[in-house]
Design a binder for these strands. Sequence first.
DNA 1: CTGAAAGCGCTTACAG
DNA 2: CTGAAAGCGCTTACAG
Lengths: 351, 351
Amino acid sequence: MPRDAETPGAAVGSPLAVRMDDVAERARVSRATVSRVLMGTARVSEATQVRVLDAMRELGYVPNTIAQGLAARRTDLVGLLLRDPRNPAYGLLHAEVQTEAARHGLQLISVVPTPTEGVEDELAGLRRLLGLRVGGLMVSTGVIRAADLEPFLDAVPVVSVGRIEEHPGIYGVSYDEDTNAAIVAGRVAEAGHRSVAVIIPDIRVSTAENRRGLGMAADLEGRGLDVHRVEANSFGTNVDGYDDVVSLVRAGSITAALFPSDWRALGFLDRADAEGLRVPEDMSVTGIDGVMPGIERMGLTSLRIPVREVAVRGVEVLDRMVRDRGSVEIRHERFPGTFLPGRTLGAPPPH
Amino acid sequence: MPRDAETPGAAVGSPLAVRMDDVAERARVSRATVSRVLMGTARVSEATQVRVLDAMRELGYVPNTIAQGLAARRTDLVGLLLRDPRNPAYGLLHAEVQTEAARHGLQLISVVPTPTEGVEDELAGLRRLLGLRVGGLMVSTGVIRAADLEPFLDAVPVVSVGRIEEHPGIYGVSYDEDTNAAIVAGRVAEAGHRSVAVIIPDIRVSTAENRRGLGMAADLEGRGLDVHRVEANSFGTNVDGYDDVVSLVRAGSITAALFPSDWRALGFLDRADAEGLRVPEDMSVTGIDGVMPGIERMGLTSLRIPVREVAVRGVEVLDRMVRDRGSVEIRHERFPGTFLPGRTLGAPPPH
DNA sequence: CTGAAAGCGCTTACAG
DNA sequence: CTGAAAGCGCTTACAG
């Protein structure tokens, strides 16, 4: 029966309205044969193949991925649940993951949560991807907990990229936040600071930043420094804790502030300007990430996280899991970054 | 018939393996009724509704979007084809579009092409989205031509965001690149420069950058300045043309270089440093975009494009088109940006 | 190498 | 208000 011209979402005459049956008819073969050519799996005679390919091209056929997925009970689609794309670290990760996915023949679709919303919104994004029944899932940093993922681990392989992961059912390819924290803390201590502030966001705001903050504080205390822990518990803003830091500096209680991200550190540098605080003469400031374009120009002392390595490895692992789940033993890998010297870390001011 | 335990992609016991029939059975209703509750369209008795909702929750049911889309011949999914996520302008756009889509109840999925590949790769991304039979499409800046989109316009509404658009079948919500170019050019001229370089990428590299470059050159020539057009035709790199600019400065032929993006301008500042050229004492440099985090700190003279306005308007229009195509008359809107003063534009050096 | 037919998990007239 | 049934556009055993 010919299709109704009213079929929504696929106007007649449009390539999107062309179905496999149309291709089959034009190529004078059965639908099954067209499918075989499309899949590239079964043997099809040379002549038939050419006819089918020609018909596809002539009609501008775009296979309906939806129907393919439903019929085959599988997809080449893999999903990426990405955190805040405004953050250059995630923007870069996004690009690298796509590049690698393409190399591996995986079709990447991405979902980003609304940056200013919390865990509920991230879960909605997760369901969007799961509803599409993606063949694999990459979860980038964010506030989704392993427990939220747990119910789905039997059905879909999950790789955590760039976020701390310790769940035994989730492969982890992360930045080594503890080592990173220790590297930055070590440099600050070596510069001679004895009393510093460390900005520590709540774990619900960012698991990575939380871990970095805690790591820096622990490391510095281990070295005998006096550490003021400054909480930053608001979601989607970087100004949290600035007031406290300024007060501490003014009171002569600290000579340096260690931020868990460049974003927070740079925001503070503007604030310091506004307050008339000179960096590094009056106080030192450090960040972490080191991937912002032009970071060297800004002179922020930071640590560069290995985004590309993490993307390459993450996709490699997911690809293996998608193809043969059993062949991959779950591990939690961590990649440390490299110190990025800058002009915002100096010796403490003489008092 | 109970499902085979081998069903791939949906292990038994996982919520992803739960089908609507399972929910129906547990709630002691028909599949049709479950569907009605899920859709929220038809009337269902209070009691039945509660039973169905309970069953869904107890089983952890995640509706199969694939099957829904196939059966309903429509989707709430809208696709965003985004250009290079490493570019902060697109990262910001991505975040804003998602925020707006969520407000409008649209489910956004994004596809990014591999940054270093060309138009073929972007077309593959387009097909990925079309294969999913998204209900609407937002196309961000990139090298895809209107002609590539044309065959699909009958079937799916398309809104161009942040990229020049002139096709009568595609709604355009763009940056006003011509005005933007004129603004920057005007400031350079006012600063007293009489001979400058304008970096002009090929249209296949970036339609937006191409337009900006041509616009700046035309405006300056209109003002009687001597303009050296520097081509930049490589894909995925910002260093193209740097050699030429350095030579022109060394030869005393120009006193300023106008780049069509901050990315290119910042890259050049590093090069200038390496060459021992002081900015703005020896030469002036300008960019365009103004959305990079910390841009003020870097001091680059630039122009800030109105990303949020474009995202808000683009999603608003797409939403209307998705709901009732006929209600929207195609237009091409343009939003100008605002000048961003910096330290890299000064008076020309005395010779 | 090729086709007829069942079935993927849903939605939606069509009846009641 | 609810159910039985057709059908969305495909893939894939099963036969030949």
